[in-house]
């Protein structure tokens, strides 16, 4: 009995980041849908623009940027909301949105999990730069067409609308996305194609919340962290002991590496000073 309990505790501990992350993601989805008795709904709207706790406006800066490029006039509430969101991600790190907020991440993570369970090897290799191409295309098309180009397909708000109004017209697209990640391309959507991720990556490229190798001497070099990382290239300098922190803006701060690492070498840290020293040796910039 005690053994079972201990196994459960260690099982939870080795999934603690995943569990916290999923809980937050699900809570955000539910906040828009569920009416709490006596309190009501705590979030209105959807992830493109919302009102939290009846007062706090939040607006997706990417959607607002498309709208402004399409020719919309400036509006106070939307700008305040976008400034709050952009400020948060610019300070902490842009792609936190991808792994902690975006509901599509649950869909693609499920596809990836299934892909690994069924040991599907076939993989369409895509360039990770494709998402930047799509981002530029979305912005250019917004200027050219005068509509919010990415919002014609954006699966994030599509998912929320389907959920809120129980329509199912867009389910085909969400299913296609799942199948694409499951059968065609490993981490294809979030890791290679989604321009929202590319936007947040750009927005939070100096984000200060970083995976840090606190005890780099404890690292056994097993590179298990790289195997579970959705953007494995970001960890490469750490494992090669060439850097102390993950500075690549592709990092989604999902914590998969922290869950996986047994050595305790890694931690999530708010890194307020620049990389002035490495293993106690000051870095001199040429």
């Amino acid at each position: 009995m005690a053994g079972l309990f201990r196994r459960m505790v260690s099982g939870l501990k080795s999934r603690r980041w995943l569990l916290i992350r999923r809980t937050l993601q699900i809570l955000i989805v539910l906040a828009f849908v569920v009416d709490i008795p006596e309190v009501g709904r705590i979030a209105h709207g959807n992830l493109s623009s919302s009102l939290w706790f009846w007062n706090v406006p939040l607006t997706d800066p990417f959607v607002l940027l498309q709208s402004l490029l399409a020719g919309a006039p400036l509006a106070k509430t939307a700008l305040i909301g976008a400034a709050i969101v952009a400020g948060f991600y610019a300070f902490f790190g842009g792609r936190i949105y991808c792994s902690w907020v975006c509901p599509i991440n649950m869909l693609t993570d499920a596809a990836h999990w299934l892909r690994q369970k069924l040991k599907i090897k076939g993989n369409l290799t895509l360039s990770r730069e494709l998402r930047s191409v799509l981002l530029v295309m979305a912005l250019v098309l917004s200027v050219v067409t005068g509509t919010l180009a990415w919002e014609m397909i954006n699966p994030i708000t599509l998912f929320q609308r389907e959920l809120m109004w129980t329509s199912a017209a867009g389910v085909t697209f969400l299913a296609a996305l799942f199948l694409f990640d499951f059968l065609v391309s490993r981490r294809g959507w979030c890791g290679h194609l989604c321009p929202v991720g590319a936007f947040y990556k750009w927005l939070g490229r100096y984000g200060r919340l970083r995976i840090t190798a606190l005890k780099i001497d404890a690292c056994s070099g097993c590179s298990d962290c790289i195997k579970v990382c959705p953007e494995p290239h970001v960890l490469a300098p750490l494992v090669a002991q060439k850097a102390m922190t993950v500075t690549d803006s592709d990092c989604t701060r999902c914590g998969a590496c922290l869950d996986k690492c047994n050595s305790g070498a890694l931690a999530m840290k708010l890194d307020m000073h620049r990389g002035v020293s490495f293993r106690g040796i000051p870095i001199v910039k040429s």
Binding site: G45, S49, S50, T59, S67, A70, G71, P73
Partner: peptide
């Protein structure tokens, strides 16, 4: 309609 298409951010508020 044209300006609405560019200004509405499809939030549903």
């Amino acid at each position: 309609e044209k300006e609405f298409d560019s200004t509405c951010i499809r939030c549903g508020l």
